[in-house]
Design a protein around this nucleic acid. Structure first.
Lengths: 345, 345
DNA sequence: CTGAAAGCGCTAACAT
DNA sequence: ATGTTAGCGCTTTCAG
């Protein structure tokens, strides 16, 4: 209740406290070398004594430079995005740039609002998930006059730079791996999210991959909300009751895959002999399951780090024009214990 | 590579485009009512046509008002914090305020740096995890002249407001519940994080609760890094080999608890008959496990929502002085399937 | 309802 | 090495 009503300190206060011009105080505080050691220490002492915290609002306005990078992602509840953030964070750790996060909940209108909000702070760059944006959002990105990196997906045309994996290809590769192991009766489970374009592309790539071998998905189910692990259990049970002939289940994310795995183990079903399983994402969680679920690593941390590098380069004094603006990372498939049928442990 | 080099648009550009003074344009864009409908629509049309995005840097400097709330948390990798953020986000959803997140990695020096960075943007309020801060950080919080809410913990003295649970009490209550069920040989597993004060307080409360009944922890282990689920497995195995007489395992978080649970089920051990288990946090994940791990809900979303309300109130034109500045939430214990020994399913 | 003037706190660009 | 001047793009305040 008692936040001190004192007017925040200004450069002037420090200046007066140490008898040095505002300009010189400013120089010291910005660590510019051209100040004598004597005044430097005097200024620093006064600033610390007073507890002065510079006002970046004024500083940014005057210098026409903002050390902020807008990061726009769909959600924080899916561990994928915090991991991307960690990649961005560490790449930006010892630079002047600072990430600021906005969350869209997978809603295009909210993405538009959040983007507008962030751009109104005139950040030095934008990192935004996905390649699908409303026309208005795309227009804002284009005319912002700052570097823009679209991340996580490369199946589409970016506004500027892009770093990600091909989800379509990820789906195809998984289909190929599954077929190669001799599975033929395949079920799919995923989230009911028409706006999750990456999940959609994986699914499309997957069916495409199967189609090449003349195979079709035999059953599918979609969920929304709730604990993914629990949903994985339920859906798996339901699907197998409905389609007992399935010999492989492909899950659009590792959490429901893990739920399915736990359920099948409970049932005493032979994995991967009777039924094979695979998920997507390579979440750390899987390490602790009784069996390792087959999955595909989405390169989350690298994507974040790389995107941050692109912004860093673009905002540096002499940008290296050689730096790739379109980066396609290759997800590695881990077979774990649930996909290689004929090489059982 | 082609972010347009165009100078960002200013109010003046819009003003010229529609033949209305900058001042009036500004009024329209800030949705102040005192503008005629005619000019209003003319201005809006011009702004949209040009793709004008206001400059909040200049706006905030001029108005001495910043619609930002600094949120400072230790980590994004532990789902607890994203959940708190969700609580904050939704409480701030339809208000002018916007959260900005900073991450400290549980390091006091980094907390200090992050806080300094955030305060330099002159936010309208601060929400910060924990009650333990360096002297410098506390000084900054005190002299910032803005509302400060310390969250997640109430065992200590806040700078200003506080919202959380008592981790010490949570530990004690769990001890009580365990003893009540007749368990007597108790092991503890947790993270090796001297700087995680909340985990430490839970542990202290726990030993205290046991001590009241003349009981001591018989074995303990701490881990750091790696997949919590996998660590839970390993540690549980190691501990039971070392101390085969244990009849209860208390885990400082649900993830390692879940790992332990999976391990014990693999081993065919009777839970909760032979060995009882409990974790902490009430993570959604648990819903999908073969057995429900006993746990305690840390009220994450509520904490975030409540903290945001306090900031909202404090920054509103007429703050309600009645609004509680110290809020202690009560975690509810869920017994699940792993704690009630004599009431087996 | 609309406009003109002043200035928010800082830094770029020049002095000295 | 230090100081001076003039704004950055907006909003506040006060006049019409």
């Amino acid at each position: 209740m008692s936040h001190s009503p004192k007017r925040p300190l200004t450069l002037r206060d420090v200046s007066e406290a140490c008898g040095v011009s505002e300009m010189t105080v400013s120089r010291v505080l910005r660590k510019r070398g051209d100040v004598s050691e004597t005044t430097r220490s005097r200024v620093l002492a006064a600033a610390k004594e007073l507890g002065y915290v510079p006002n970046q609002i004024a500083g940014s306005l005057a210098s026409q430079r903002v050390n902020l990078v807008a990061v726009i992602i769909p959600s924080l509840s899916n561990m994928v995005f915090p991991e991307v953030l960690n990649g961005i964070n560490s790449a930006l750790e010892n630079t002047p740039l600072q990430p600021v996060v906005g969350v869209t909940d997978y809603l295009p209108e909210k993405e538009e609002r959040v983007l507008y909000e962030m751009l109104s702070w005139r950040p030095s760059g934008v990192i935004i998930a996905g390649l699908e944006h409303s026309d208005a959002a795309r227009a804002m990105l284009q005319s912002a006059g700052i570097p823009v990196v679209e991340i996580m997906d490369v199946d589409g045309r970016p506004v500027d730079a892009m770093v990600g994996i091909s989800h379509r290809r990820a789906g195809r590769e998984m289909a190929r791996a599954i077929l190669k192991e001799g599975y033929e009766h395949i079920g799919f489970m995923g989230t009911k999210m028409p706006l999750d374009h990456r999940a959609r592309k994986r699914f499309e790539g997957f069916t495409e991959g199967l189609a090449k071998a003349g195979i079709e998905i035999e059953d599918r189910a979609f969920y929304s909300g709730g604990s993914a692990l629990a949903k994985g259990r339920e859906m798996t049970q339901t699907m197998l009751e409905r389609s007992p002939d399935l010999d492989f289940l492909y899950y659009s994310n590792d959490m429901i895959g893990a739920g399915g795995l736990l359920y099948l183990l409970d049932q005493g079903i032979d994995i991967p002999g009777q039924i094979g399983l695979a998920g997507f994402n390579g979440v750390e969680l899987l390490q602790g399951l009784p069996r390792q679920l087959a999955t595909m690593d989405a390169c989350r941390v690298e994507i974040g780090a790389h995107a941050a590098q692109i912004i860093l380069n673009a905002t540096s004094d002499e940008p290296d024009p050689e730096i790739a603006q379109q980066v396609t990372l290759t997800p590695t498939i881990s077979f774990g214990d649930t996909l290689q049928r004929y090489r059982k442990r």
